[in-house]
Amino acid sequence: MMTDELLIKFLLKETSDAESELVCDWIAASPENLNHYSQFEKIWTTSKNLAADRPVDVEQAWVNFRQKAAGGSKPVVMLLNPLAKWSRIAAVFALVLGAWLAYTVLRPENYKEILAGNTVKTELLPDGSELTLSKRASISYAEDFKDNRHLKFQKGSIFFNVAHDKSRPFVIDINEVAVTVVGTSFHIRHLEGETEVIVETGIVRVSRNGEELELRQGEKVLIAETTAELVKARNTDQLYNYYRSHLFIAEGIPLKRLTSTLNEAYNVNIQIPDEQLAAEPIYTTLKAEDGLAENIKTICRTLDLKASMNKDQISLSRTK
């Protein structure tokens, strides 16, 4: 069970490696834990600015804080020994009480949005982490990001190169899914009710509804809204990397996967009515700079297909 004492110690950067790992694992275990930690961290950050001129009885402050945090429904009894090593932490709790009082009147946490238009966008976050956003991708990050590395993923494909900071996990919320890392590089795609996470370097923890799995280099997970569990697999292609490499590399992937990526890249609607054709493997490499029309021609030549237009929809079918 996670204790507030250990969270305070973690925020003070006084935890051992084992304790830091325990806290990071706990944060990644569920959205509720992440929520609690984010709130606790905000209280702690605010306390630094409030506590200097706020003389408080340490033991009573901690009791009041715990009652306030619990909604005041249950009395809390806790005795602190001022001569023990916890006296320092008790003093920190006094700061936290002052912060809690301020927190009740603070406005909800603000986020800054990063939005890519019709071009791929690279963004450097305040902690030194670098994001590469595909066209029309969007994500938001907390205004106090240096202390609270928390993001909300809206849509699109984004590649993350995260700055290493073991004391402050890098957390991305995607609806019910949470992705937690310390320092690593990985890709996330969130479109049409599906979330895909692919790890290039390091370790990424993905959690959903209390279930968690750990992804390492070359591993991925694909999560649909109707997915009951998290299942990881080996990543076997480089198609996901198109917005960084400017190449659509298809090495035996289903045609449907390639056309879905083209839909995202060119903001079009390519459909394959024949399910058997949609699952057919394709081997080709397309250049983004060649444009949609030329790349559709290459696909048709490769698989002996024809393309037809119906309003704003492109339909692919067999020639025979």
Score class of each variant (00 low, 15 high):
45 T>G: 09
4 D>R: 11
210 G>A: 13
66 R>K: 15
130 E>Y: 00
212 E>V: 13
162 V>C: 03
253 I>Y: 02
227 T>H: 10
290 D>Q: 06
271 Q>L: 08
147 D>Y: 12
252 G>H: 09
197 V>E: 01
204 V>E: 04
297 K>E: 15
226 T>S: 14
286 L>F: 11
136 R>I: 00
308 S>H: 13
182 V>Q: 08
139 I>N: 03
208 R>S: 08
214 E>N: 15
156 G>S: 11
35 N>I: 06
95 L>T: 03
266 Y>L: 10
97 L>V: 02
156 G>R: 00
254 P>Y: 04
154 Q>K: 15
318 R>Y: 12
263 N>H: 09
130 E>L: 13
133 L>N: 02
85 K>H: 12
252 G>F: 10
54 R>G: 02
139 I>D: 06
79 L>C: 08
187 H>S: 14
131 L>R: 02
256 K>T: 01
184 T>P: 06
137 A>I: 03
142 A>S: 10
73 S>P: 03
260 S>M: 11
228 A>C: 08
294 E>S: 09
132 T>Y: 06
165 D>H: 08
139 I>Q: 06
46 T>F: 05
225 E>G: 08
116 A>E: 03
295 N>T: 03
214 E>W: 11
227 T>Y: 07
165 D>W: 04
90 A>T: 07
108 P>W: 13
189 R>H: 07
59 E>Y: 04
20 S>F: 03
71 G>W: 12
82 P>V: 10
226 T>P: 06
134 S>E: 01
108 P>Y: 12
202 G>E: 07
144 D>P: 00
11 L>D: 02
78 M>Y: 13
238 Q>V: 01
199 V>D: 00
35 N>V: 04
22 L>G: 01
76 V>R: 00
182 V>Y: 03
46 T>W: 02
244 R>P: 05
270 I>N: 01
161 N>D: 15
240 Y>E: 03
43 I>R: 05
87 S>D: 12
254 P>H: 00
278 A>K: 03
265 A>W: 06
8 I>N: 05
268 V>M: 09
214 E>C: 15
105 V>G: 11
11 L>T: 01
317 S>A: 11
298 T>F: 02
45 T>W: 04
19 E>V: 11
169 P>V: 07
176 E>P: 01
101 L>D: 11
161 N>E: 13
84 A>I: 06
17 D>I: 12
3 T>S: 15
166 K>S: 14
273 P>M: 09
155 K>W: 01
201 T>S: 14
21 E>Y: 11
316 L>V: 08
235 N>I: 00
203 I>V: 15
237 D>K: 03
85 K>G: 09
202 G>M: 04
261 T>L: 04
17 D>Y: 13
170 F>P: 00
185 S>Y: 05
64 N>V: 07
258 L>M: 11
227 T>F: 06
119 T>E: 12
75 P>K: 11
314 I>S: 05
185 S>T: 10
97 L>W: 13
89 I>E: 05
38 S>Y: 08
243 Y>Q: 01
100 W>L: 02
9 K>R: 14
232 K>Y: 10
203 I>E: 13
41 E>M: 06
295 N>E: 01
117 G>N: 11
200 E>K: 13
52 A>W: 04
27 I>T: 04
150 H>A: 04
32 E>W: 07
239 L>Y: 05
177 V>K: 02
299 I>D: 01
25 D>T: 15
260 S>I: 07
